[in-house]
């Protein structure tokens, strides 16, 4: 009885809220209407282009007949849960992206530190260099890795000339190391971007005090700077990790490591066409990304977040 009562009250409350928002009489209600109007276009698009397709994904993963989307079955989820192959793909993705995130954030700290603290000779060039790769899609990054490490690559040929070996044996663009560098290429700029924002707010006086009191540069960094930038490092790691999970073009070209995006692509390719399994993997993947982001960001200052 009480449940029913509280349900009725909350329904009534929502109804009043909706009607006052539509026809406001007080300034407070008018403000609420303004907020609703301002947020409306964004959510209209998000629902039409985002949430509805995601709901459709759920339907596909549960469909018995994947061509006409008829019937219901848990086959795809069962396949996903029982095939060891998929667990391996998940593990592949997590360690690979995790490692790439670690390296990118560490290098990002170094770059952000140098940009903020040192008088670099070509600061503008460094800033441009670490910011423009954000604009490059994964396939272009894959190509740039072959420019360095492919059979006709710069580094490959330089080593070949220096050591007298054949360039074919040395090419590592399509090895896992090449793919790893591709990930770092895409992720490093994102990590640096977040960390630069954090570094701009570091209290320099505390560092100067530490130095004046005789701490070495490393001690100053470790005991003074690092605690200050820790929220930024966490935010950078979260955003970099989730960007890393979404990388697809680079893997599609270099093909050297079976990560989740490549697996999804394979599931909908001709020959192994299983859209229900692809949809199921996709859902797990999206739920993981969303949960990871929300849980992660709870521990971080929201201001540090940039894409």
């Amino acid at each position: 009885m009480s449940v029913r009562k509280s349900a009725t009250t909350s329904v009534r409350r929502i109804a009043t809220l909706a009607s006052t928002t539509a026809r406001p009489t007080t300034e407070r209600e008018r403000e609420r209407r303004r907020i609703a109007v301002l947020c409306l276009p964004f959510f209209a698009l998000a629902i039409v282009a985002g949430f509805v397709p995601l709901a459709m994904l759920v339907r596909i993963s549960l469909a018995e007949d994947t061509i006409w989307m008829d019937g219901w079955s848990f086959d795809a989820w069962e396949t996903l849960a029982t095939t060891p192959e998929y667990r391996r793909v998940a593990w592949n993705t997590l360690w690979f992206v995790g490692l790439a995130t670690g390296v990118s954030v560490a290098l990002g700290v170094a770059v952000a530190h140098a940009l903020e603290k040192y008088d670099l000779p070509a600061e503008r060039i460094v800033v441009a260099a670490v910011s423009f790769p954000i604009a490059l899609p994964g396939i272009v990054v894959a190509y740039l890795i072959t420019v360095l490490l492919g059979r006709q690559g710069l580094v490959t040929n330089a080593i070949a000339v220096a050591t007298g070996q054949g360039a074919h044996g040395l090419a590592s663009a399509t090895a896992i190391t090449g793919l790893f560098l591709g990930y770092v290429y895409s992720l490093l700029p994102r990590a640096t971007m977040v960390l630069r924002g954090t570094y701009a707010e570091v209290n320099e006086q505390a560092e100067e005090a530490a130095r004046a009191l005789g701490a070495s540069r490393w001690e100053t960094f470790y005991h003074v700077t690092l605690p200050e930038i820790r929220p930024g490092i966490a935010a950078a790691a979260i955003l970099t990790f989730r960007s890393g999970l979404a990388i697809f073009g680079t893997v599609l070209i270099l093909q050297s490591h079976q990560v989740v995006t490549l697996q999804i692509h394979n599931e909908i390719s001709v020959g192994s066409y299983a859209p229900d399994v692809a949809a199921a993997i996709g859902l797990v993947y999206v739920v993981f990304i969303v949960a990871f982001t929300f849980v992660g960001l709870r521990f971080v200052d929201d201001d540090a977040v940039e894409v």
């Binding site: 609420r32 947020c39 985002g50 999206v286 929300f294």
Partner: peptide, 28 residues
């Protein structure tokens, strides 16, 4: 406003990767 943080997170984070969105889009 109420749920401002949630709206903020939704608005500033690309929550659905392009690949998944593409697959879902064509089917929907």
């Amino acid at each position: 406003f109420y749920a401002r943080d949630w709206v903020n997170t939704f608005a500033i984070l690309p929550l659905v990767p392009g690949l998944i969105l593409g697959i879902a889009f064509v089917q929907t």
